[in-house]
Design a protein around this nucleic acid. Structure first.
Lengths: 350, 350
DNA sequence: TCTCCAATAGAAAGCGCTTGCTACGCATGC
DNA sequence: GCATGCGTAGCAAGCGCTTTCTATTGGAGA
């Protein structure tokens, strides 16, 4: 029913081997023969059987991309970058590589499931984005899985995640979250803020911890006491920023600044402040993290730390497909850039 | 080197057939035997070979999702919804289905390429999101491809795209862009606006045309002349909204409202107005389309047409995996809801 | 006690492709 | 003029799995 290689071979009056070689282009075939084969392919609307091809060749053109939330531009941008870089003449069959984007929802179980699925598909490469869970058991399980993927021949690239000791062959492009957090709070302290609320991300995640540590580092360096009551944890969403801001205001009415775990949370913080009738940055300054596209359109525009998500994703994609050298030691740090905009200013005198 | 079914069989002292049956769970296997097999699987860290399995079974667990731009939440939300619905006990091997998200960048060539790739992988289903190109040649080519996919046994669901005559077996979940556009402009006219600028999306796309037609329908119904100078086309991005707004202001300084092709474009329009020192909605009202998450955080909050992207994507996912009945005739229309917020108001008297 | 059937396991034939090896020319070198 | 080698094409053996068909049980029913 469906057209196979053999059908094409018959029509072109050559052997299946020749058709395969024309399609893969990695073996000399006389121009006239190639012509004939290609015409037959065209005439019959032949489409290679991917699974059969992958089975025989023991490789595949699939590249997995693990993201926490594909609807979040933070991940969408990285995924888009990875995909744009892996595209192009693929490994075999003149085909292109395909990106398999997997939504883990941040759950380590699902992360593990998807890694198994990718291993099952014999993925050519896997790019894992987003911070890691800090739970030792899970981290170990994922590390083991990644190592097995490496052993099975898949390239593994971590993008925006610290290296895993368990998988030494995996390349890691780590975001300098700690440094970014440090610079952000330094900036606020420099403006004169002393009572700064911090809305952190979910606990048990490296990203959350590093950003928070940077913040605390800045406080310590300036000799500002770190009041634990002024740090709240929550998911990376608008709602969390909204609720936490109200709570911070309750705990410390003299608050002059709020640092959010990321831009989305910051947007929620802004909304809460507006609803409370407080002006930004007149009454309270707000800062985010990531510099997602919408941040510049917030009113006032959000001060934040710009992470080069697209660039990092693109690099991950190139490394995953072997088009760029691995960084020395398999580890590279990607730095963020402080973007000072309208949402932060000097605190008003109380 | 790598562990195969046969290895597991040997260790469990059963035949490969039995192992396969345990893994697929679609054939009676005695509890004790299953136990033994599962232990062997575990002991050996066995991972099924996906390509081999797909080849032998002539089906795969891959579901393709075509999107114009994965970094755009409009598509990200749909993709996320599709993926969350296709997940769960997959077709075979106790595995789950995997989503393959393909970034077409809106280019019909790449759309075609990806459809071929998916056909090559023998995808279980394909969900195509985003408006269609109106170029007859491309439309026909894509229609043919979709039909071939259907013929090859893949389910095809169009999500947010009008039905294709060429692929009668494809289910279509169409957005009521025309109706939404109509209601939006009706709203503005109701507020008293008469000089309304329209920043349309890229030409040659069904989405663009339908939204614009709705707008013009509303104008006509209210007896407002449709000045072609007040309609500009551009891509679906912020920049386009910014530039077009400046141009509209140049063409018609007495403009009192701007309708944008979508929320992102509307954000650009807002930025341009702010930069020109115009207040929203005091001087100029602004309206968007889609109601993406950030729209409510615009200042003032954006009046827009809410498209149930998540719901539509989820439904597409369920239909794609056969967990929901197809709509009668294979076609369903998804309606948008007008969200009136702060960015639109009565025009100031000139 | 014997037959028959349900339940379970195995043997083996592919699925459609890739690729190592072989075969066949024909031009070249001595 | 014969051996050598290069440029092409074919043969056939898998790749690792699924599934049909067959074989072997151990009761249950007669």
């Amino acid at each position: 029913m469906t057209v196979t290689l053999a059908d094409v071979a018959a029509r072109a009056q050559v052997s299946p081997a020749t058709v395969s070689r024309v399609l893969n282009g990695n073996y000399p075939v006389a121009a006239a023969t190639r012509e004939r084969v290609l015409r037959a392919v065209d005439d019959l609307d032949y489409v290679l059987n991917g699974p059969a091809s992958s089975l025989a060749a023991a490789t595949s053109d699939l590249v997995g991309i693990l993201v926490n939330d594909i609807a979040d531009p933070f991940f969408g941008i990285m995924a888009s970058a990875v995909q744009s870089e892996i595209t192009g003449p693929g490994g075999r069959a003149g085909g292109e590589r395909m990106a398999v984007v997997c939504n883990t929802g941040g759950s380590p179980e699902r992360e593990l499931t998807y890694l198994t699925l990718l291993q099952r598909q014999r993925a050519a490469a896997v790019v894992v984005t987003g911070g890691a869970i800090e739970d030792a058991t899970h981290a170990a399980a994922i590390g083991r899985k990644l190592r097995r993927l490496c052993d099975a021949g898949s390239r593994v690239v971590l993008c925006g995640r610290p290296p895993t000791g368990a998988a030494p062959d995996a390349v890691a492009l780590t975001f300098d979250n700690r440094g970014g957090g440090r610079r952000l709070t330094d900036h606020l302290i420099g403006l004169g803020h002393r009572r700064i609320g911090y809305i952190a991300g979910p606990t048990e995640r490296t990203t959350t911890r590093h950003r928070l540590e940077g913040h605390q580092e800045a406080l310590a360096a300036a000799g500002v006491a770190n009041d634990p009551l002024l740090t709240l944890h929550g998911p990376y969403d608008r709602r969390s920023g909204y609720d936490a801001t109200l709570e911070l205001l309750r705990r410390e009415p003299r608050l002059t600044a709020v640092v959010a775990a990321n831009d989305t949370v910051a947007l929620g913080a802004c909304a809460a402040l507006r609803d409370r009738g407080l002006s930004i940055p007149g009454d309270v300054s707000v800062a985010g993290f990531d510099d997602l596209p919408f941040s510049i359109d917030a009113v006032p525009a959000l001060t934040t730390v710009r992470l080069p998500l697209y660039e990092a994703g693109a690099r991950a994609g190139r490394i995953a497909t072997g088009r760029e050298e691995e960084p020395p030691g398999g580890i590279a740090t990607v730095h963020g850039e402080l973007m000072v905009r309208g949402s932060t200013g000097a605190p008003r005198r109380h």
